[in-house]
Design a protein around this nucleic acid. Structure first.
Length: 802
DNA sequence: CCGCCATCCCTTTTT
DNA sequence: GGGATGGCGG
C-alpha cells in the first residue's frame, strides 16, 4: 500500500521492483516465449496484440463488451515494462473505481511478478489527484495533511455557508447546492470560471458567491472535497508549469480505462498530462457510456482523434463472453442509437440459448417467477454466483429480496450502504480526524457532543463566534474558552474535560500504535460505552463494526495513511459465505459477467426511465438504451427479460406498457415465453414483433414523445402493448408534467377532482370490484371486495358496469 | 435535550 | 408505501 504522506521526491527510483535492472527477472521471463515473442503476448488475437504493441503516440482502443479490454490494458503495461520503455513508477494508469484498479494491479502482478507493487501511479482518478495534491499542497493553499471530505461533510459545510448567507435552506437545499457545485467541478469550473448566468441561478443570484465561500471555508478547514482532488490538482498543474513539466516527464506512458466515462475535468487533467509525450492509450466503449448524468462526456471518446491527431484507433470486436444469440440481440438493440463509433460484436462460439422475453401480471409475480426459475437452476446444479438480477432502480430490489428470503435462496445485494458511511464509523473517524488534523472543524462538531456530554447548541454557538473572530479552529477556540467565564460552569466543565482528553490523546500519537490509540480514544471518550448501554437491536453490530475498524487500521503504517484509505479506497467486498445470487442495479453491473442474467422491469417509464426521457430527451433515451445493452451483454449463456403489466409505484398500483426496447430486439434471436403462472392477458405473444421493421430510428426532437405516440399507434396494430388499459405509464411516471397517452390519442389529463364519489361501485383491472371509500383529488381509496382497501389512481378504475 | 409527528420526495452513484 | 428530515412540543 503506498503511503499518501510519503512526500519524498519520486524521481528517486522507487524500488519494490527487483533492484537488478530490467534485464533481470521480468524481461527475461517475459521474453522467454518460443519464437522470441514474449510469453505474455501469447493468446492475444491480432487486434489485441496490435493494441498492446502500438507503443508510440496516442492510441484509442474501442473495446466492446467482453472483448478482453482489461487484458489489453494489463498486457500493454507489462509490455512497456518488459521492453524497457518505462519503469513501473513511470506509468500512469487511471481507472474510475477502486475495484477496477485493484483488479488491474492484481493482473499486472500475475503477468510480471511482484513488480506491480512498484506502480505508485496506478489508481483511481481521485486517488492520483490526491497524491499529486499532497505533494504540492502548499501551492494551492493547503497543507499536505488536508482532509478529504465525503458527501456528508460537504453538505454539512454547505448548510453552514447557506446559513451564514441567510439563504432559506428550505427553498434552496444544501443538497441542491452540493449538486450544482459538483456539477461545476465536474466541468472544470472553479468559482472564477462559472458562467455568470449559471452562477445566478441558485438562491436568487447567490450561487457563485456561495461556491466561492464554500471553497474559502474548505481552505480554512484544510480540507478538500472529492471534486477538488481533480479540480485543484488541475489548477495546480496549470498554474505551475514547472510542476506540470515534472509530471509530464516522469509519467512516460499514460493508460486510461473506461474512457467513455470521463467528465470534463478528468479530460482536461489527462490532456494536460498527456501533452508531454503523447504516449496516451485510452480504452473504452461508447456503447457502454451510462454515466452521462454525473457528468461523463461521451464526446470525449467520440472526439479522441481530434484531440490527438494521428491517433491510432483499434477496434476490439471479438467477444469472448456471450453466445451468438445474446450478442445478436444486444447488437440489434444498440443499433438504434445514433452517433456511435460503430462496432459489431461477434463470436466464434455457439449460438446458444435465445434471450427470452416474458410478460407477467405484476411485480410480485415477476419476483415469484424469477425466484422459481432460479430454484430450478439451482436444482440443476447451477452455481448461484453465476446468477444475477439486474434492475433499473434500486426500489425494484426489495421485492426480490423478500421473495428470496421466503424461498431461502441465498442472495447478496451489491451496492448497499458502505461500511464507512455508517454513523458509528463516521463518529470514530471524526475522533481520529480531530487528532490528525486539528483544523478539521467538521469532525470536531460531529463528536463534540457524541456521546452526550451536556454540550448543546448554545455552547457550539459560542465556540463558533469566538473561533470566527479569532480566526482559529474550534478545537483551539475550545481550549481558550474553557479558561474564561464565557460558558456556564456545567458546560465549561464538560468542555474542559474534552479538551484535556484530546490533549492527552494527541500526546500519545508519537509513541503509540495508531490502532491502539484509536481503541484508547473510543474507550476513554465514552463512545464505546454509549453503544454498550444502548438497548436497540443494532447496538451490538455497531460495536462489532468499531472493532473491525480498529482491526483494519493495523494494515496501515500511520494514521494519515489509514484516513486516506478510508476516504478514497475503502469498500467492503465480502465475498465469503457460499454462493449467492447477486442483485444489483444495471449501473453496478458494468464490467461484470454472469452465466445467467435476469432483467426484470422492462416497462416504459421504468426502463427507459421516464425521468431520463423528460430531462434529457433523446440523449437520455440513448443512454437508457446503452444501459439495456450493458444489461444484455452481461450474460454469458442466458439472458431473461421480463416486463410486468402492473407495478406499484410510490405505493400505488399502476398499469404499465412494455418497454420500447423490447420492440428493438431482433425477432429471430429472441424467444417469447408465456409466463408459467396462468393469467392469460392478451395476444402479445402471437403478434409480437409484428412491427419489428416499422421502426425508424429517426426521432424528431421531442423524440421520446413522438416515439411514445408511435408506440401507442403500434400498440393498436399489435406489438407489445395490449388492451386499452395498458397505456398510461407516461402519466404514471412523470406525474403532472406529461400528457397521458391513451391508445392512439393524446388526452389532456385533468388534475381536477375525480369523477368518482364515495360509495360508487368501481372495477379495477388488478383488484376487481370495489366500493369507493374516499376521494382525494385523483386518488381514490377503494374498499375492494376481494383485495381489501387500496389506494389507486382514478384513471385506473372504471365505473361499475361501464 | 429528546422524541414524536408532519412533510416531502422518490433513478442511476464513484470518489 | 416508506424513509429521511425538520419542526415543535414536552
Amino acid at each position: 500500500m503506498s503511503d499518501p504522506f510519503d512526500l519524498s521526491d519520486a524521481d528517486e527510483p522507487d524500488f519494490a521492483i527487483a533492484p537488478a535492472p530490467r534485464a533481470g527477472g521480468i524481461a527475461a521471463r517475459a521474453l522467454a516465449g518460443a519464437a522470441g515473442a514474449p510469453r505474455y503476448l501469447e493468446g492475444l488475437n491480432a487486434e489485441q496484440r496490435e493494441a498492446v504493441e502500438a507503443m508510440d503516440g496516442p492510441v484509442l482502443v474501442l473495446a466492446g463488451a467482453g472483448t478482453g479490454k482489461t487484458r489489453v490494458l494489463t498486457t500493454r503495461i507489462a509490455h512497456i515494462i518488459a521492453t524497457g520503455r518505462a519503469r513501473p513508477h513511470q506509468i500512469l494508469a487511471v481507472t474510475f473505481t477502486n475495484k477496477a484498479s485493484r483488479e488491474m494491479k492484481e493482473r499486472i502482478g500475475a503477468l510480471i511478478g511482484p513488480g506491480a507493487e512498484g506502480m505508485p501511479w496506478l489508481g483511481t482518478f481521485h486517488s492520483i489527484g490526491a497524491k499529486i495534491l499532497r505533494r504540492h499542497a502548499e501551492l494551492v493553499g493547503l497543507q499536505s495533511t488536508f482532509t478529504i471530505l465525503d458527501t456528508d461533510d460537504q453538505i454539512r459545510l454547505l448548510k453552514q455557508v447557506l446559513q451564514a448567507e441567510d439563504v432559506d435552506d428550505k427553498r434552496w437545499p444544501a443538497r441542491a447546492l452540493a449538486h450544482q457545485i459538483d456539477n461545476w467541478k465536474n466541468r472544470g469550473l472553479d468559482p472564477t470560471r462559472v458562467p455568470p448566468g449559471e452562477a445566478g441561478a441558485f438562491a436568487n443570484g447567490k450561487g457563485g458567491k456561495l461556491y466561492e465561500m464554500y471553497q474559502a471555508r474548505l481552505k480554512t478547514l484544510n480540507a478538500v472535497d472529492f471534486g477538488d482532488l481533480l479540480l485543484e490538482s488541475l489548477r495546480l498543474m496549470r498554474e505551475h508549469p514547472d510542476v506540470l513539466t515534472q509530471f509530464q516527464e516522469r509519467l512516460r506512458y499514460i493508460l486510461v480505462d473506461e474512457y467513455q466515462d470521463t467528465n470534463t475535468v478528468q479530460y482536461l487533467w489527462l490532456r494536460l498530462l498527456a501533452q508531454g509525450r503523447r504516449n496516451v492509450c485510452c480504452v473504452g466503449d461508447d456503447d457502454q457510456s451510462i454515466y452521462g448524468w454525473r457528468g461523463a462526456e461521451v464526446d470525449n471518446i467520440l472526439r479522441f482523434d481530434k484531440d490527438f491527431p494521428g491517433a491510432k484507433v483499434i477496434r476490439l470486436e471479438r467477444n469472448y463472453r456471450s453466445t451468438g444469440h445474446i450478442l445478436a440481440a444486444a447488437a440489434h438493440l444498440i443499433s438504434h442509437n445514433g452517433g456511435r463509433l460503430g462496432k459489431t460484436l461477434f463470436t466464434d462460439g455457439e449460438d446458444g440459448e435465445m434471450p427470452t422475453v416474458t410478460g407477467i401480471w405484476d411485480s410480485e409475480e415477476e419476483a415469484r417467477t424469477i425466484g422459481e426459475d432460479i430454484e430450478q437452476l439451482q436444482r440443476k446444479g447451477a452455481n448461484l454466483d453465476e446468477v444475477a438480477i439486474l434492475v433499473r432502480a434500486s426500489f425494484q430490489m426489495r421485492e426480490f429480496e423478500e421473495r428470496f428470503i421466503t424461498l431461502g435462496v441465498p442472495y447478496r445485494v451489491i451496492g448497499g450502504p458502505r461500511f464507512y458511511e455508517r454513523a458509528e464509523i463516521r463518529d470514530a473517524l471524526a475522533y481520529l480526524r480531530c487528532i490528525a488534523q486539528p483544523a478539521d472543524d467538521l469532525a470536531f462538531e460531529r463528536i463534540f457532543n457524541t456521546p452526550k456530554r451536556g454540550l448543546g447548541d448554545a455552547t457550539l454557538q459560542c465556540l463558533h463566534n469566538y473561533a470566527r473572530s479569532a480566526r482559529i479552529p474550534l478545537m483551539q477556540a475550545a481550549r481558550v474558552i474553557v479558561e474564561t467565564e464565557e460558558l456556564k460552569p456545567k458546560a465549561r466543565g464538560s468542555l474542559r474535560a474534552l479538551v484535556t482528553d484530546f490533549a492527552r490523546w494527541s500526546s500519545l500519537v508519537e509513541n503509540t500504535r495508531h490502532s491502539e490509540l484509536a481503541e484508547t480514544i473510543l474507550e476513554e471518550s465514552g463512545y464505546t460505552d454509549m453503544w454498550r448501554n444502548d438497548r436497540s437491536a443494532d447496538a451490538a453490530g455497531r460495536l462489532e463494526n468499531l472493532k473491525e475498524l480498529v482491526r483494519s487500521m493495523e494494515e496501515f503504517p500511520d494514521l494519515g495513511g489509514f484516513l486516506e484509505h478510508i476516504s478514497l479506497v475503502m469498500d467492503v467486498d465480502s465475498r465469503e459465505g457460499g454462493a449467492h445470487v447477486s442483485i444489483m442495479t444495471l449501473h453496478a453491473a458494468k464490467g461484470l459477467e454472469f452465466e445467467t442474467v435476469y432483467l426484470p422491469g422492462w416497462e416504459e417509464g421504468l426502463f427507459p426511465h421516464q425521468r431520463s426521457l423528460d430531462e434529457n430527451g433523446r440523449a437520455g433515451l440513448e443512454e437508457e438504451r446503452r444501459l439495456a445493452y450493458v444489461g444484455v451483454t452481461r450474460a454469458k449463456r442466458r439472458a431473461k427479460i421480463y416486463f410486468a403489466t402492473n407495478r406499484r409505484i410510490h405505493g400505488m398500483w399502476q398499469t404499465t406498457i412494455p418497454s420500447r426496447f423490447l420492440d428493438e430486439l431482433p425477432a429471430d434471436h429472441v424467444e417469447v415465453v408465456e409466463a408459467a403462472t396462468g393469467v392469460s392477458y392478451g395476444g402479445y405473444a402471437q403478434s409480437r414483433f409484428a412491427n419489428q421493421d416499422s421502426y425508424t430510428s429517426t426521432y424528431s426532437t421531442p423524440g421520446w414523445q413522438r416515439a411514445q405516440q408511435r408506440r401507442s399507434e403500434q400498440g393498436a396494430s399489435g406489438g407489445w402493448s395490449k388492451g386499452p388499459q395498458a397505456a398510461q405509464s407516461t402519466q404514471a411516471w412523470s406525474g403532472r408534467k406529461a400528457p397521458a397517452v391513451i391508445e392512439g390519442e393524446l388526452v389532456a389529463k385533468s388534475s381536477a377532482a375525480s369523477a368518482f364519489e364515495p360509495g360508487a361501485r368501481v372495477f379495477h383491472i388488478k383488484f376487481g370490484n370495489g366500493t369507493v371509500a374516499s376521494v382525494d383529488g385523483n386518488k381514490l381509496t377503494v374498499e375492494f371486495d376481494k383485495a381489501g382497501r387500496k389506494m389507486v389512481l382514478d384513471s385506473f378504475v372504471q365505473a361499475h358496469g361501464a
